[in-house]
Design a protein around this nucleic acid. Structure first.
Lengths: 158, 158
DNA sequence: TCTGAAAATGGACCTTT
DNA sequence: AAAGGTCCATTTTCAGA
């Protein structure tokens, strides 16, 4: 059950979060392991769910999704069925890249990607304004995507 | 030069954002294209920077990064060298998964991943409290990662 | 689009700890 | 048992005709 990673696993994860296209023999060379051993470890990491999946990262600019917007939302009622309905509507919206249910001054934080302000405005209409369980929301428009990723810090020596 | 995607490219991107491990022959079957055609398109998409990179997505829970925290930051001075220094310090911090420079009530939005509240507290010390260009910051602790990803919506038929 | 070479993956089997 | 290494078959990628 010990899902504990050894130093090899950590090095592999570090590399693969950066670049999942490195072939296994090259990975082996980097971490000092045979190709077969790398192969086995990658399988284990995937099966254990430590590697959730492999994904292509698409450049938003190159496909004219030039806008990134962060929205914070406060709800009226935290009744469970209401919350669930909201979670679902946020999750289903493809322009919602991320959604966090948070404690503090707000209840949800959403990260949108959109092609234009008009598109975002329309989304707020659908998701926020037409929902009377939303007390208020605030919009922060990103001027610069300073750092964007989902990498988890992996300490190689630990 | 026209970086415009046709319907095949869009379908491919849609699939690969979800799962970058699908072999090219399987992709071909799904979008109705030969393996070789898929191969050429993927190369083109990468070379054009439309596919930025391929990445392994690691499950934070499985490696004991149980905390996700969103922080908003207001700066004292928006002088360029000050901003740059801050951007750099945020970018370099491995626990900062994302950082956006925003317009509105705040100047930066940061998304942290951390192992514990103590770790986060220590990070705020390093990044915020020891920096006297930061006027104030606010912390929102995520109770649930409702949706997490970097996918761009790709309309298959457009 | 087809064919085939080269590369990468992944299993079998043996060895080490 | 658990994990590594070598070798080999299969699958996948990718270029040329």
């Amino acid at each position: 059950m010990s899902t504990s990673l050894d130093s090899f696993d950590r090095k592999l994860l570090m590399e693969l979060q950066e670049n999942a296209q490195i072939p296994q023999n090259e990975l082996g060379a980097r971490v000092n392991l045979s190709t077969a051993a790398v192969n086995r470890r990658l399988r284990r990491l995937s099966e254990a769910g430590i590697i959730e999946r492999y994904a292509a990262i698409v450049s938003p600019d190159k496909v004219t999704y030039n806008l990134t917007i962060i929205a914070t939302v406060e709800v009226e009622s935290e009744q469970l069925d209401h919350l669930d309905a909201m979670r679902r509507s946020f999750t289903q919206c493809p322009q919602v890249q991320q959604c966090y249910y948070v404690a503090g001054e707000w209840d949800f934080v959403l990260i949108f990607t959109a092609r234009s302000m008009d598109e975002y405005t329309e989304l707020t209409r659908q998701l926020f304004l037409s929902n009377n369980n939303i007390k208020r929301f605030k919009t922060l428009v990103s001027m610069s995507r300073v750092k964007v990723g989902l990498s988890i810090p992996i300490d190689v020596d630990e």
